[in-house]
Nucleic acid binder design. Structure first.
Length: 648
RNA sequence: GGGUCCGUGGCGCAGCACGGAUAGCGCGUCAGCCUUCUAAGCUGAAUGUCCUGGGUUCAAAUCCCAGCGGACCCGCCA
């Protein structure tokens, strides 16, 4: 007997059994769906119904008596997996027939192998997952690295679920910041990088942006010094002080580059204007500007690709924001928005009345907003006619929906309002359906202890640094723990252990929670980490290797130990966990599952022999169990992008 | 001021979508386990007003309301 979802099979039988019994003794009662709980203790069985508590009040009977009555009415002979039904304290408890259930679960896992657990959806969709989308100005820092880890895991999960998934990277090269870095790069004479390209670009960006900001503030001070109130002058002075200290930091860290840029733009009074001109020229598709900005952006992206490839993240499409502007899609969207009654002009710029859209289309309840909350308006254009980020995002979103049924944007929760306004803009344009299929997967920030990471200020820890450190730490661990391995093996293991640890650490915490970055968090190699699960997987592989035989006709009824039964239950539940993870977009469920299974296996490993178990039939059954665990751990790690090694 | 999210042993987290029996786990602390299948492991001990107060319910960490604390957002930045 084989089932792709063993635990669901048991659950279905329990449901059916309960429904029959209810119909028999209380035909007048209609229950839509039966919810089951997992009992806190195996002596209460594997599934429990608390239905009697609900019915007790309606029927004016005691739950305990009702439960006994109901349990007694179940004819368990009609079902294959139900061994016993008991009534305890008002609950109806279902006990699984472990002999049959173990056989079902372990044979199914063996049969499905690398596809076990990945139940296909009945409604496959074309889904675009947009993730990472770090601006091409500086290296990906650890605060941003949570994004590709979550995005990639979500994409993998949805693919295994049977959807057609495309991962898109949105290259935001139209913002003013791109012109800032391009300006600095140009002043330096467009040099070739002498290090990893994104790190190189990042330095230019930070220093340029700092110098330009100082210029601006100093001029502002000159202008208002005589006329403005003292507290305003003091405020500007404070800002100057802050940027001066940043400049000092940068000068110390990158003396050569700092000097060069200081010389070129330190006193350039027209820097601000030149950057604005460059930005305008770029949006207008002027060829010199195009060449310059694209050149810097490409450099940076080259660095990103290296980093992301290293952690096993890849994309199906790299979408340039500028392409949307140059192709006229942005201005077309603007025209169409202007034609709606929701756009007005104020102070020479176009404003979008998001609040009115929400009211007219009665969307507040649907979008989870209170009726008395007023959605702030969205400015669509600058006074010079250039577009703003969210405006371009409207065009981009429509472009994405031309290619998919559903769009998932993995974007920090600080952009919640912008994403809401984006949805409302879609409604205003008549694309309410797209808005409904647009998901903002919001995740919380990663901060450094004491301060927020700031790319403009050059205060960040790069993802590359974290990966390097993790791999180095892992190398030290492997060398210590497995000195017998060859140098090559150690390097290889260090690589996937270190990278796995980082991936796992960034996926494991609920995306809604803020994370304070500490090295301890990502360099954890003990329980509840990728290395722990990887180690457990390698351990299972090692046993199977040493056994050197195939347990062909194992007698699963020999698996009578509570530890073995818990393992079977865990394994049988993997498909349901996977479905939950896919439907609710919760990759951390997979990490938790893997960790919990590893925990149970290690307990089992320490308590009971596998190869040396007597009689051999028991050894065979335990080998089959071990093999099933190996498969489940492998599959779980696979979806969160972590390598499952055979040795470490 | 308004909005969104978060609040669970000393620290870091799970559980909350779908209410259910004794709230789990890791770190740290203490006491143990390697001539036995990988000790990146295991066993045991101590540690909790599940932010506070109301409400709904037979039943609340979980749902609702109010408050407190923290993060983020409310820009002709992205």
């Amino acid at each position: 007997m084989i089932a792709e979802n063993p635990f669901a099979k048991f659950r279905n039988e329990c449901e059916e059994a309960l429904a029959h019994a209810l119909k028999k003794i209380l035909p007048e009662i209609k229950v839509e769906a039966f919810a089951f709980n997992k009992p806190p203790n195996p002596e209460f069985g594997q599934l429990a119904s608390s239905l009697c508590f609900e019915l007790a009040k309606k029927l004016n009977q005691k739950p305990v008596e009702l439960a006994a009555h109901l349990a007694g009415a179940i004819d368990k002979r009609k079902f294959t997996l139900i061994e016993e039904v008991s009534a305890v304290g008002g609950y109806v408890n279902f006990h699984v027939d472990f002999a049959k259930f173990s056989a079902l679960t372990l044979q199914s896992i063996r049969q499905y192998g690398a596809t076990y657990g990945f139940i296909k959806t009945e409604k496959p969709l074309k889904i675009i997952v947009e993730h990472t989308s770090v601006n091409p100005l500086h290296p990906i820092h650890i605060g941003q690295a949570r994004n590709p880890m979550i995005g990639d895991a979500v994409a993998r999960i949805l693919r295994y679920r049977g959807h057609t998934v495309f991962c898109h990277y949105y290259i935001d090269d139209v913002g003013r910041q791109s012109s800032v870095v391009a300006y600095g790069y140009d002043k330096l004479g467009r040099p070739q990088p002498d290090e990893k390209a994104d790190h190189f670009v990042g330095k230019i960006y930070t220093i340029t942006s700092c110098l330009v900001e100082l210029n601006r503030l100093r001029r502002e001070l000159e202008l208002v010094k005589a006329t403005a109130p003292p507290d305003e002058v003091a405020k500007i002075n404070r800002q100057i002080d802050e940027w001066m200290s940043i400049a000092a930091e940068l000068k110390e860290k990158f003396p050569l580059l700092f000097e060069k840029l200081l010389e070129k733009i330190g006193k350039a009074e027209d820097a601000e204007d030149e950057i604005n001109r460059l930005n305008l020229a770029y949006e207008n598709g002027q060829s010199e500007a195009m060449k310059l900005v694209r050149e810097v952006s490409e450099l940076c992206l080259k660095g990103f690709r290296e980093t992301l490839e290293r952690v096993g993240v890849c994309y199906d499409s790299w979408d340039w924001e500028s392409d949307l502007v140059w192709s006229g899609q942005v201005s077309e969207v603007l025209q169409r928005l202007k034609a709606t009654p929701f756009v007005y002009t104020e102070g020479g710029v176009l404003e979008f009345d998001a609040e009115r859209v929400a009211r007219v289309f009665k969307l507040k309840a649907k979008l989870g907003l209170r009726e008395d909350y007023e959605v702030p308006p969205l400015t669509l254009t600058r006074a010079d006619g250039t577009s703003l980020y969210t405006t371009r995002d409207v065009a981009y979103t429509l472009w994405k929906f031309d290619r998919s049924d559903k769009v998932i944007n993995v974007i920090g929760m600080e952009q919640s309002l912008a994403q809401l306004q984006l949805k409302l803009a879609l409604h205003a344009l008549g694309y309410g359906k797209c808005a409904d299929n647009l998901v903002h997967f919001a995740y919380n920030l990663v901060t450094l202890p004491g301060y927020k990471m700031s790319s403009r200020r050059g205060r960040y820890i790069t993802f590359d640094e974290v990966l390097d450190e993790a791999v180095e730490r892992a190398y030290a661990e492997v060398s210590k723990r497995s000195p017998q391995l060859s140098e090559e093996e150690k390097r290889e293991i260090a690589r996937f252990v270190g990278i796995g640890a980082v991936r796992y650490a960034l996926v494991d915490v609920d995306a809604a929670k803020p994370v304070v970055f500490t090295w301890d968090r990502v360099l954890n190699f003990e329980t509840n980490s990728a290395p722990y699960v990887q180690y457990t997987h390698a351990r299972a592989c090692s046993i199977l290797r040493k056994a050197a035989r195939e347990p062909v006709e194992a007698d699963f009824s020999l698996l009578k130990e509570p530890l073995e039964r818990e393992l079977v239950l865990s394994l049988a539940g993997f498909p349901e966990t996977f479905i939950d993870a896919a439907e609710y977009l919760k990759p951390n469920l997979i990490a938790d599952f893997a960790n919990a299974l590893a925990d149970k296996f290690n307990t089992f490993y320490n308590a009971l022999p596998v190869i040396k178990a007597e009689p051999q039939a028991l050894s065979d059954a335990r080998l089959a169990l071990t093999d099933a665990i190996r498969i489940a751990l492998h599959n779980a790690l696979n979806i969160i992008g972590v390598v499952a090694p055979e040795k470490m």
